[in-house]
Design a protein around this nucleic acid. Structure first.
Lengths: 232, 232
DNA sequence: AGCTGTGAAAAAGTTCACAGCA
DNA sequence: TGCTGTGAACTTTTTCACAGCT
C-alpha cells in the first residue's frame, strides 16, 4: 500500500539514506537492516522504518531491505530518475565551489546556466558551461526550462536575483546569501547560511560552558548562588 | 523571569532575528513589534513572541521590543559576546569561500588556523592567516584553544579530519563534506550539504508535477484512474 | 529467531486567543 | 488602544513496543 504525503521531516532524511545505500551497494551489500542503516545515517532504527514505510512496504521481515531495490525506490520518490535543469547565479568562490562540486551533476542535476554580473567573468567557461550576464537570467531560465536556481551572490544582490529567477519561471530556489528572501507562492525556497550555523554552534558551546560552571558549583554546594548567574 | 533551556527550534531562529534586528538598528529603528520582526524574518508573530519569551520578558506591552536591547540579549544568549576561535580544514573553492566570507569574522568568530594537505598551499597566506599542514591540526587546535572546526574537504577525507579535530579538543564541528560523521559524545555536529538540499527541492518539484497531473485529471473526471499512477 | 510495519504513547513544536499591562 | 506574554489547543515528529511475516 503506497502511502501518499511523506512528512517533511522524513523527506529531509531520504537523501541521507540514499547516500548510505549507494555506498552499501558499491561495497556489494545485498540487504540491509533498519538497525544497520540507522547506524550509518546516525539516526534511530524506528525512525528509519517509519520513514521507509511512507514509501511503501519494501522490506522483508526477518531479513531487511534489498539495497538495490531501495536505492531505486528512494531515487524515484525523490524525483532523481529524471533530469533537473539548474543554474547558479554568482561565481565568487562559493559559486565556483558549487559549480565544480561533483555531487551536483551526479544525481540528475544538470547545470544548464551560470550567471554573474562581472563583465570579466561573462563569456568565460566554468565547469564546461559558458558564463552569461545576470541580465540574461529570465531568458535562460525559460529557454532551458530551469527548475532550480541556486543563489550564490552577496546578500544585497540576492533578492533581485530571486526575482529574476522567479520571473523566468523556476519553481525552487536554494539560497546561500545571508538574507531572508521573499518569493511568490508555489516556489520552494531553502536556505543555507554559514553564519547562522556558526551561531547555533556557539549557543551550544556557551550552554556547555554554563552547565559546567553550574555542575561544579553543585558539587561544591554553590548551586543556588550560581543558578541565575550569567554564563562563563 | 529568565527561562532556562531554550528549545532547539527556537535557537535555530535566534540568529535570524538577530540579523533582522541589526539591520533595523542600522536603519535607526528604536523599537520593533513581533509583527514587524516576524514579517522580516518570514515567520509567524506568535512564534517570534514565544521564541523571545524563552530569553526573558524583554518586550513592552503596547510598544514592542527595544531593538538595541534585544540585539544585546540575543547576542549574549547565542554566546556572541565572546570570541570563538575557529579553523577551516580544506582550502578548495569552498574552503576559500568560507575563509573570505565576511560574516565569519563579523560576530566574534575568529579564524585561528587554516589547514590543507596540499604542500603547494601550506605556507601561503589566505585571508590573513598562514596555511598549515593538516597534520598540524591537533597541535593548532590545542594551541589556539579552537572551539569550532569547519570541515571543507572532500567526502573521503572528512572522517579523518573530524577525528583530528576532536582529538585536538574542539567541541563543535560544522561539516560541509557529503558524509555522515561519527564524533564523540559532547561534540556538537552540524552539517551543510548541497546535494541533500537539491534532492529535497527535487522531491517537492516532482510532487508538484504529480499534483498537477492529478488536479487536471480531477477536472476531467479521471482522478480515480490516475490517483496511484506514477508521477509525471 | 530475526526484523519489519505500525498503532499508540510521548515529546516537541506551532498556532490560537486572550488576559494584562503600558 | 496596542502589543506582549503565555496557557491551552492543535499539529508534527519521535520513540516505544509488539504483532505478524519469513
Amino acid at each position: 500500500m503506497t502511502a501518499r504525503r511523506v512528512p517533511e521531516a522524513s523527506v529531509a532524511r531520504l537523501p541521507l539514506y540514499l547516500r548510505v545505500l549507494v555506498d552499501l551497494a558499491e561495497e556489494g551489500a545485498q540487504t540491509v537492516s533498519s538497525q544497520a542503516l540507522a547506524e550509518s545515517a546516525g539516526v534511530n532504527p524506528a525512525k528509519v522504518r517509519k520513514d521507509l514505510s511512507y514509501l511503501g512496504s519494501y522490506g522483508t521481515r526477518g531479513v531487511g531491505y534489498d539495497v538495490e531495490f531501495l536505492v531505486g525506490q528512494i531515487s524515484r520518490e525523490l524525483g532523481l530518475s529524471q533530469e533537473w535543469a539548474t543554474c547558479i547565479v554568482g561565481l565568487g568562490n562559493l559559486g565556483l565551489a558549487l559549480a565544480h562540486y561533483g555531487g551536483f551533476a551526479e544525481r540528475g542535476f544538470h547545470l544548464a546556466a551560470l550567471l554573474d554580473d562581472d563583465p570579466a567573468k561573462v563569456g568565460t567557461t566554468v565547469a564546461g558551461v559558458e558564463v552569461s550576464h545576470v541580465e540574461e537570467t529570465e531568458r535562460l531560465v525559460k529557454e532551458h526550462d530551469i527548475a532550480i536556481g541556486v543563489i550564490a551572490v552577496p546578500g544585497p544582490a540576492a533578492q533581485g536575483v530571486a526575482d529574476r529567477l522567479c520571473d523566468g519561471g523556476v519553481s525552487s530556489i536554494l539560497n546561500f546569501a545571508p538574507v531572508v528572501l521573499q518569493v511568490p507562492d508555489g516556489v520552494s525556497l531553502r536556505k543555507v547560511d554559514l553564519s547562522v550555523e556558526l551561531q547555533i554552534l556557539a549557543f551550544y558551546e556557551q550552554r556547555r560552558a554554563a552547565d559546567a560552571v553550574v555542575d561544579s558549583a553543585a558539587r561544591t554546594g554553590l548551586a543556588d548562588v550560581l543558578d541565575h548567574a550569567p554564563p562563563q
